[in-house]
Design a protein around this nucleic acid. Sequence first.
DNA 1: TCCTCACGGGG
DNA 2: GTGTACGTGAGGA
Length: 754
Amino acid sequence: MNEVRGWLLDLYAGEEQGLVLWIITESGERKRFLHDFPITFYAAGPPDLLRQAWRFLQNDPIQKTLSGSEQLDLFSGPQKVLAVSVTNPAEQPRCFHDLWRRFPALIYYNTDIPLTVRYAAALDLFPLARCRLIADEADHVQAIEALDSPWDLNPQLPPLRILRIEPNVDPQHDSPRFVTIHGARGPMRIPIEPWRGLMLTIRANINRYDPDLILTRWGDTWLFPRLMVFCKQQGITYFNPNRDSHKRPLQRKENSYFTYGQIVYRGSQFHLYGRWHIDQQNAVMVGDYGLPGVLEQARVTGLPVQEVARKSPGAGVTAMQMQMALRRGILVPHTKQQAEEFKTLSELIHADRGGLVYQPLIGLHRHVAEIDFISMYPSLMVHYNVSPETVGQGGDLDSIIPELDRPIDQSREGVVPATLRPLIAKRLALKQQMADMDPRDCRYQPLKARAAGLKWLLVVCFGYLGYKNARFGRIEAHEAVTACSRDVLLTSKETAEEAGYQVLHMYVDALWVKRQSSQAADKPVTEAEVRQLLDTIAERTGLPIALEGIYRWVAFLPSCLDDRIPVPNRYFGIFADGTIKTRGIELNRGDTPPFIAAAQREALQILAALPEDRPPADALPEIISHLRGVIAALRGGQLSPETLLITHRVSRLPDEFRAASPAARALRQLAVHGYERRPGQRVQFIYTRGNPGVYAWDLPEVFNPAAVDIARYSDLLIRAAHTILQLFGIEKEKLRTLLLSRTIQLQLPLTRTS
DNA sequence: TCCTCACGGGG
DNA sequence: GTGTACGTGAGGA
């Protein structure tokens, strides 16, 4: 018998039996173990049908044990079920599938739970867990235990060996000539032709360095698929980037799927066994929270590292809820795998009609404090115990939320709040550590990435609650949360008003307040005063709340179509420290050409640079002169084509467009030259004069700068400038003259705002 | 004026 | 094989 201490690196079903575990030992070895781990799933239904199913399974050659038992359904309580325990995890999917095909009328549970999630629920062992195991001479695990927990704030992680491989250019648009390999030693450049040489070099590097993680760019969509195709053509069987030579890498096809109200493109995937492969170009969220965030998510969700790197956080939330259900002995219903997330982006961008939206007072306001609830929806779910199985259960009707016409059972913590509680606590604790640290400290960035990884799990969980296809979703629970949120915001408004503040605006989880005009409205409100208000609100609502900041001034914008109507989410302002915050204006949009976003930002920076005691309108001459400079550069052809690029994410194939929008015309241009864009991918173009009015970026022919549609870009610039300058009473047409006239007008017709 | 299409957060 | 918010704004017919 051997005792081994180390970290759990990888876990999957073995080909012949049990689970395969890869452990990075404390002494630095990478060791493969086998662990017997039967997988149980359940079927419920009429007794005679269950008896037929039992007989069917007895005649099926897959090794398993059958038993009758009683398990808890989240909604309908105890159920008599047939338990099917498949000895070899690799055979469980097929066993279930055969049964399901033969008995589609039965209700199935625990059929599609990821292996790592089952393992975490059964043994507290999650990806990257530190563990101690005892194995026999054949490396079969006899006993294993965790030495740390997903909720440890600063766990000790294994030292990972990382091999980086990336081509010199984007293979989608160009033909790479070499790849750079960065491993044990410094970078080396390997020519792509001949592929045989490239394959041998990569193989040699993998063998020599034995990396735990191969970090690539376009490894999913280009490098590995191409290498495999090459090897197949040449009849080469010895190239295997896995650490586990018993298995071939797992390839998944590219797809476009609908989620959060838009089409997302996900390239093909190339997963390894015994080590990880992450393609930074295909791991959508990696840019947001980086490798530390991915590892953090793997630890808390129990999903494999390679999966969390490529999936959206919705999959992580589902995994956490499944794990919680397994731990509590609650059945996880089988649903055919649909879109992985809630269908709307609403909770993400605060546009949910369920959340309270207030009409702001249009115009510029001085000395305004913005107060935000922290992770408001998750906090509400925990605070009010909102869960699919608690809403509408027990308790009396006039319970906690006046607006809510149904009770929420408070006798036991629900599955969803129980899942969220440690997540919220951990994120807050990490943020607390960050607050006590110098941002230049090398430990700061990883903390931030981990906190961001957790934040995303919290953000999507609310959407899941209302998603009818989610395992633990129920629309009533979703409504309960939004009802609670409105109640909380209204309570906050009352509290603020009682404390002598005027509430200028409220938006889902934030409110903007200033002193009542009777109370020396122009005297800056102090942080200490607002903190007092915060404490009162936190006390009355029971929710965590934070001061986003105190604005020198903030401007709420009217609708572009009717300047008397305010829109709730278009505003900008300058905080006391000079920081700019903007929402919903041109520079926030991904489809604004970079030079326009930059010009708008510059205008705001000029405003921010103004001494505090001067009125904002004093910045006008400098802003106008700056914008005139931008127009001059545009006319003079001094702007690089890249800064003129408009980026759109297209929702359909070129011939599926009903309207010849600029993006559609750019797509067609690309198609003519044999360049393909799948729905969900980006297309970039420049407005040009004449037909077709666009130049699609990435076209092989050279871009002619003389073709740029200067009038059109001027219009876009004027529009963006007007968004800011309308506050100073400058009409769009006046602005056009100010910016476009060839002679400089010395007198600026300015209306001062009070 | 109507229709189509795309965007949106936070740190 | 997946499902289509909602409000706003832009561009084209």
